[in-house]
Design a protein around this nucleic acid. Structure first.
Lengths: 224, 224
DNA sequence: CAGTGATGTGACGCGATTGTGACGGGATTG
DNA sequence: CAATCCCGTCACAATCGCGTCACATCACTG
């Protein structure tokens, strides 16, 4: 069972500590302007109030996204009132979600539990974050350190397949099948050309080379 | 004249199609567990039954709120009975409103028409700021770096729809549905012409090209 | 350090996809 | 009711994507 880490900008955490009975499943931390005070493993759920004493909530949200430690936290903005424009701003600042406040203990837990089931589905369909590389499945756009990478459709599919199987040697056959190309049969050497083109495109965007050749086997997407 | 989009979780839509005379003002769609089947422009009104065959109504409501495409829909929960606890739960899940069912055709239309005046205030002041691009919904005016962009009606709607769904691949079909053009059926290639005209108009105002072609899929409005 | 097999890559060409000027009918305007 | 505008369609042009080939380069072996 995974740990669920909940970050809050308000004092609600202390009250939640007592509210929740199964302490092993949850941790709570107060979120300050410097980000989280301690590192945690497992999924992170941040609830950020729209207005904060020392910092705009939106800015806090952007900082979380920019910090590699918290970049893949699930961020919920807590709006003061139900303004469509605020909602959009929240999402645009990188929030995954929002609620209309004030935040209650049950609201936090309901939300976390409700979204938890969707989390796997979301990460599969929405967005990869792999080191400097980001892949946005909705926009079909990859970035290296925020810099857009111009990719042809096949290159994008290839990169995505690598991103789905990091740190794992993929044979040329794996790659051909992984991209769903059976008809007409593809020459295995063609994969080398795919790799070359993908590498070149990433480099053109100022990126490094995350694709390592494993002689006489295939290629690996190196991560960490 | 804005389109009014009504989403229902029941089959009532089909019956409403025949009930309403002014077809140009309304669209109806059945709301499934995956959210709306097509993207639309203009205000969205969702009516969600409290109990659904495959999904709790509350969960459906949360999903609508979490999905940027539908985040600012007006959501009405259709309760089975008038339980104060249910009402509270509905609102907490992000519903704007509730009625006690069962839902009738007139109830839907009355509700939409009654609430529309309130909604129009909100949307009248709406204003997008997307990078260099500004869209003023009240003045029906778009600008690039402050420079007015001369747009034909269809181009404006197209741009608006893109602005409502930035960083997201929109298929030609999404765009046709999104602009509410179903009758008579529009040739998908026509969308390419729309795009070309919109690009040209933006360029004529000294703007760049925020519309990226995604080969064999559609187009994206790139932001950031 | 020569030999051998594997990988990197520029070039080519076909087929598919997209861009766009032209046209005409219908709506809109004055 | 004439002039203008808007927009959907078509046809052709321009561009793009990608699989393959051929040759260059590289890595490992003995």
């Amino acid at each position: 069972m995974d740990v669920v880490n909940i970050f809050l900008t308000s004092e609600l955490g202390e009250s939640l500590e007592h509210f929740v009975h199964d302490h092993r499943r949850f941790t709570f931390d107060r979120l300050g302007p410097e980000g989280p005070r301690r590192l945690v493993e497992g999924p992170m759920w941040a609830f950020i109030d729209w207005v904060l004493p020392d910092l705009a909530g939106l800015e806090m949200c952007r900082r979380l996204r920019a910090d590699p430690r918290t970049a893949d936290a699930h961020v919920t903005m807590v709006l003061e009132e139900d303004d469509p424009e605020d909602r959009r701003r929240a999402l645009r600042a990188g929030a995954d979600d929002y609620v209309v406040g004030p935040l209650t203990r049950t609201a936090v837990l309901d939300r976390v539990l409700a979204l938890q089931s969707r989390a796997s589905e979301r990460s599969a369909t929405r967005r990869f974050e792999l080191g400097a590389l980001t892949i946005d499945m909705a926009a079909l756009q990859a970035r290296w350190d925020g810099e857009p990478i111009v990719l042809r459709p096949n290159e994008f599919r290839l990169l995505r397949f690598f991103a789905e199987n990091p740190n794992r040697v993929l044979t040329r056959d794996d790659l051909i099948n992984g991209l769903g190309k059976r008809e007409p049969p593809i020459d295995e050497r063609t994969v080398d050309v795919w790799i070359g083109r993908l590498r070149r495109s990433i480099k053109a965007a100022g990126g490094g080379n995350p694709l390592r050749t494993v002689r006489s086997l295939g290629y690996v997407f190196d991560l960490g």
